[in-house]
Amino acid sequence: MRLPRSAPGWTMAVIGVPAAVLGAVGLVSPTAQLSLLGLAAPGERAAGDSTPAFMTASSMAALNMGVYYVLAALADWRSFLPGGPCRSGCSRARSSPSPRSAGGRRTSSSV
């Protein structure tokens, strides 16, 4: 079995496995998922109640996200792992000119 090779990979695996498991639980037994969330599953639903549709959609999303995270961690996909998007965004922010006047002093900002 292949394991993640970096700390970010392990982080993604630790997030992805529970997401995938809880997504699968929600698809197999939505009432069990509601009880895990601390919510009571009503015996009779009111007209227009979309709880089953929401549970199915959110469980499918959690399952997909969990599998995606685990596969990214196992493949050591660096651009996806934590810090990848932030590194590119933060480096752009750091390289942008700072608000300084011509004399080198900071200008006041109205933020």
Rank of each mutant, 00 (worst) to 15 (best):
S59W: 05
S98K: 14
A41L: 03
Y68V: 04
A102M: 15
P99E: 10
L39R: 04
L63G: 07
F80M: 07
V70F: 07
M55P: 01
G103P: 02
G38C: 00
A41M: 03
R45P: 03
N64C: 11
R45A: 05
A53C: 05
D49K: 00
A73K: 02
S88M: 09
S95W: 10
A72N: 10
L81R: 09
G103V: 14
D76H: 04
R100P: 00
P97F: 10
A57P: 05
S58D: 06
G103R: 13
L37W: 06
A40E: 02
P52M: 05
R78G: 07
A40K: 03
A53S: 09
S79A: 13
P85V: 07
R100W: 09
S79R: 10
P52N: 08
A102K: 12
S96M: 15
V70C: 09
A61H: 07
P85A: 08
G103N: 12
A73M: 03
A75Q: 08
R94Y: 14
G83N: 12
S98P: 08
L39C: 03
R100Q: 13
A75Y: 05
A72T: 12
T51A: 00
S101T: 14
A57Y: 10
L39T: 05
P82T: 08
M65T: 15
S59E: 02
R100E: 08
L39N: 01
A41K: 00
G103K: 12
P42D: 01
L39V: 00
R94E: 15
P52R: 01
A61D: 09
A73W: 02
G103F: 11
S58T: 14
S59R: 04
A73T: 03
G48E: 04
M65Y: 11
P85H: 13
P82C: 10
P52Q: 00
N64G: 11
R94W: 12
A41V: 00
A47I: 13
P85T: 10
V70M: 10
A57M: 12
P42I: 01
V70K: 02
S50N: 10
S58K: 01
G38Q: 05
G84E: 10
T56P: 03
L37P: 01
P42M: 02
Y68L: 11
R45H: 04
W77I: 12
D49G: 02
P97L: 11
R78S: 09
S59C: 09
L74G: 03
M65G: 11
C86Q: 15
C86H: 11
M65H: 13
L74V: 04
A40F: 01
C86L: 14
V67D: 08
E44N: 03
A73E: 07
L81W: 15
A75P: 00
A93G: 09
T51K: 04
G103S: 15
A47H: 06
S79K: 07
G66P: 07
P99H: 14
S50P: 03
S101Q: 14
W77A: 14
V67P: 04
S88R: 12
Y69M: 14
S98R: 14
M55I: 12
L74P: 05
A61W: 03
P52W: 06
M60Y: 06
S58Y: 08
P85E: 06
A46V: 00
R45N: 00
R100V: 15
R87F: 08
A93N: 11
G89Y: 09
S98L: 15
G43N: 11
C90K: 14
S59I: 04
A40D: 02
A47E: 15
E44H: 04
L37M: 12
Y68A: 12
D76I: 05
T56S: 07
G43I: 05
A57E: 05
